[in-house]
């Protein structure tokens, strides 16, 4: 038996851990930008619908930074080892997707498609789960981003009443239930997507309670 075998193995592990460090440093930057974007976007909760365009315009700059942040991660990984390190940045990319999805909803009251994600973040969503040949955003990351939208929607329903917009909760409720119908088509297994999906119903309930309060007081038809 040759100790050299183990020395070689150790060298392999060493070079890998320095790669991991670089990826994690790049991911940290992405997290930072996402937090800034999130802080800016959350102002949308405090203003009426008419002003939400200003809010989303103010985060455009962060979306561009997110693109460069993801680029920095993408440079570190080769397609074949994509899934080996995928867990390291997955959470951050989920957040980035959530930001885009919320921003698109605020602007156009619709669900951001995979194509929207690509145009904002510069990377394709792998909706058909095909073999990875370049850096992609996975379908799961996109779906996680959509699930995050539900909690924003339930807050938005409450907050739009605060800014005297009693029509908006109705619109939100309609949209949330349509989106929920989409999610119900999925056959989720017992994984993180499933667990977060289970929390959607509480957000829907909150939106419905807002509508109930408005209607019972005769504030909406």
């Amino acid at each position: 038996m040759d100790v050299q075998v183990f020395v070689d193995l150790q060298n392999q592990f060493d070079s890998e851990s320095s790669l991991r460090e670089e990826i994690s440093a790049a991911t940290k930057e992405l997290h930072k930008t996402c937090r800034l974007a999130s802080a800016k976007l959350s102002k949308a909760h405090a203003v009426p619908k008419t002003q939400s365009k200003q809010v989303t315009d103010s985060v455009k700059e962060q979306f561009a930074t997110i693109h460069t942040n993801i680029e920095a991660i993408a440079k570190q990984v080769r397609p074949v080892t994509f899934y080996r390190y995928h867990d390291m940045w997955s959470m951050a990319v989920q957040n980035a997707c959530a930001m885009v999805i919320f921003a698109v909803y605020l602007e156009e009251s619709r669900l951001a498609t995979a194509a929207d994600i690509q145009s904002y973040l510069g990377y394709r969503v792998n909706v058909t789960n095909e073999d990875v040949t370049e850096f992609v955003i996975t379908l799961e990351e996109y779906l996680h981003g959509i699930i995050s939208l539900f909690s924003e929607l339930s807050r938005l329903a409450v907050n739009s009443v605060i800014v005297n917009d009693v029509q908006r909760p109705q619109e939100i409720s309609q949209f949330a239930s349509e989106l929920y119908a989409g999610f119900q088509l999925l056959n989720l297994k017992n994984d993180s997507l499933r667990r977060r999906f289970d929390s959607i119903k509480y957000d829907i309930k909150k939106i419905e309670e807002v509508q109930y309060d408005l209607r019972v007081r005769g504030l909406i038809a």
């Binding site: 669900l111 909706v127 058909t128 349509e178 119908a181 989409g182 999610f183 088509l185 999925l186």
Partner: peptide, 17 residues
């Protein structure tokens, strides 16, 4: 909007399955 959502989610379901 609902039609678009259902169409794309049907595709996502097949991918996930």
């Amino acid at each position: 909007t609902k039609r678009a959502i259902l169409t794309s989610f049907t595709q996502y379901r097949d991918t996930l399955d």
